[in-house]
Simulated assay, not measured.
Amino acid sequence: MDIDQNIVNSLEYARSSWGKVATLGGILFVPFLILFVFIFIGAISNNGFVLGLLIFIGILIMLIAFFLANGYFFRVIKSTLAGLDEIPDFDDWGELLVGGLKVLVVELIYSIIFGILASIPIFIIFLVLGLIGSFLGIAGSIADASISPAVLAGSGVFIWVMYLGIFLTYLIMIAVGLLYYIVSFIGISNMAYQDNMGSAFAISEIRERISSIRWGKAIIWVLATYFVTLIAVLVSYILGLLLVGIIVVPIIIMPFLIIFLARSTGLLYLNK
Score class of each variant (00 low, 15 high):
Ile3Asn: 12
Ile3Gly: 05
Ile3Phe: 10
Val8Gly: 03
Val8Pro: 00
Leu11Gln: 04
Leu11Tyr: 01
Tyr13Ala: 02
Ala22His: 06
Leu24Thr: 07
Gly26Glu: 08
Phe29Ala: 15
Val30Pro: 01
Val37Glu: 10
Asn47Glu: 11
Asn47Ser: 15
Ile55Tyr: 06
Phe56Glu: 07
Ala65Tyr: 09
Phe67Ala: 14
Ala69Gly: 09
Tyr72Glu: 00
Tyr72Asn: 05
Arg75Cys: 09
Lys78Ile: 04
Pro88Tyr: 08
Asp89Asn: 15
Gly94Phe: 13
Gly99Gln: 13
Leu104Cys: 08
Val106Pro: 12
Tyr110Arg: 05
Ser111Ala: 14
Ser111Asn: 15
Ile112His: 04
Ile112Asp: 11
Ile113Arg: 11
Gly115Asn: 06
Ile116Met: 09
Leu117Ala: 14
Ile122Arg: 07
Leu131Thr: 12
Ser134Ala: 15
Leu136Lys: 08
Gly137Thr: 01
Ala139Glu: 09
Gly140Thr: 00
Ile147Lys: 08
Pro149Leu: 08
Ser155Ile: 11
Val157Ile: 15
Val161Gln: 03
Met162Glu: 02
Met162Tyr: 14
Leu164Phe: 12
Leu171Val: 15
Tyr180Phe: 15
Ser184Glu: 10
Phe185Lys: 11
Ile188Ala: 06
Ile188Gln: 05
Ala202Ile: 04
Ile206Leu: 01
Ile210Tyr: 06
Arg214Ser: 15
Ile219Phe: 08
Trp221Asp: 06
Thr225Glu: 09
Ile231Lys: 12
Gly240Pro: 07
Leu243Gln: 04
Gly245Gln: 06
Ile246His: 04
Ile259His: 05
Leu261Tyr: 13
Ser264Gly: 02
Gly266Lys: 07
